[in-house]
Design a binder for these strands. Structure first.
Lengths: 204, 204
DNA sequence: GTCTATATCCAGATAGAC
DNA sequence: GTCTATCTGGATATAGAC
């Protein structure tokens, strides 16, 4: 019974995703170097040898995680920008969504921390570093453009748009870090602590 | 010519500090596991073997860094709290000092990142984890008390004090991360992005 | 105190049976 | 595709000369 080669590929892709999602948690909590291939294999429930049929090396797994993370994050940022909403509504939606995601999807925090630490590490694969350098500015630029638009239409307070975007995202990254440090105890703050960066009061 | 045993101890302590300050940078940028003892020894300019006359292991170096970092940070936080200033002035001073430190002393960012990542890692020595659990809340509590005081005397806006403290410190930690990611390009934002967490406008 | 040399261990990657 | 067994390199920590 010869199997469909397309189905074969799909099963292979699913297996690769399973490996990636187990590895994210380990890389984020232990770092690349301290994570053993044996740990990843155990987490996903396969032998160490088999793992090498899906990825050529531990580093390749890491690079693939970084690649996918930026793809999703930057797509989401650009999608938000295109929605038919006012700058103020976009910022409010972003803040609410981020606070909720932070609470509900632990995975978001893991990936955030993984990228954050990889950004400053010189112990990550060169290819990962290249992706990071190329992609990391996108969400900052989207928020900076939002800030500029909101200041133009008068609904935002003053402040350098680049500064505001910086504080916005560093707060999100900081909260992700905090969320993991606290574990299940964590409760996201009111989204207004984020929107307040851009405008003081919130009358609808 | 027999040497003074007190002088001997002082020289030994200085040497230990030199090792620690070299190791901070390496641990922060590579993580504990990826930092080789040989790297630390090379950075401080001694042989690998000699390093073991000052510390029993790589992990002991790490623990000592964490211990000293919390000692300094928490002392500074408690000192600020005791100054004869209004809550508003204390927050403004903290924000200004932190933004300036961030820009001028790269070391602050390294230590901040080291502690942040160590807080969520389960690949750090148990003793380091114990210190972190015991000490990490101190700065949050100081700022939360400040927020409460400022709300009582009417100079701060509303908002849950714990939320405000959380956002304050996560922003600082996030900026430290960003500062290292950017390198010399980095320029701190206006301190008002921090004070704005507590009160909207800044008339003297 | 300082070095060089080395014992020991452990993890990444591979080979080859099923 | 999946496993077990193994090769190999490299890093920690120690030993011992100076």
């Amino acid at each position: 019974m010869a199997r469909n080669p397309i189905q074969n590929k799909r099963m292979r892709d699913e297996r690769r995703q399973a490996i990636l999602s187990c590895a994210v948690r380990l890389f984020a909590t232990r770092g690349l170097a301290a994570t053993k291939v044996a740990d990843i294999a155990a987490a996903v429930g396969m032998s160490q040898g088999l793992l090498y049929h899906y990825f050529r090396s531990k580093e390749e797994i890491f690079v693939e995680i970084v690649r996918q993370a930026f793809e999703r994050m930057n797509t989401a940022a650009r999608d938000l920008e295109r929605l038919p909403l006012t700058p103020r509504q976009k910022v409010e939606q972003a803040a609410t969504t981020l606070m909720r995601t932070l609470e509900e999807h632990e995975n978001f925090s893991w990936i955030s921390v993984l990228i954050s630490t990889a950004s400053i590490s010189d112990a990550v694969p060169a290819e990962a570093r290249a992706i990071i350098r190329r992609e990391r500015d996108v969400p900052y630029r989207v928020v900076a453009r939002l800030a500029r638009a909101g200041q133009r239409d008068g609904s935002f307070d003053d402040g350098r748009p680049d500064d505001l975007a910086l504080v916005f995202w560093t707060t999100v990254k900081g909260l992700a870090l905090h969320r993991l440090a606290l574990g299940p105890t964590y409760k996201s703050p009111d989204p207004r602590v984020l929107t307040r960066i851009f405008f003081s009061e919130t009358p609808t």
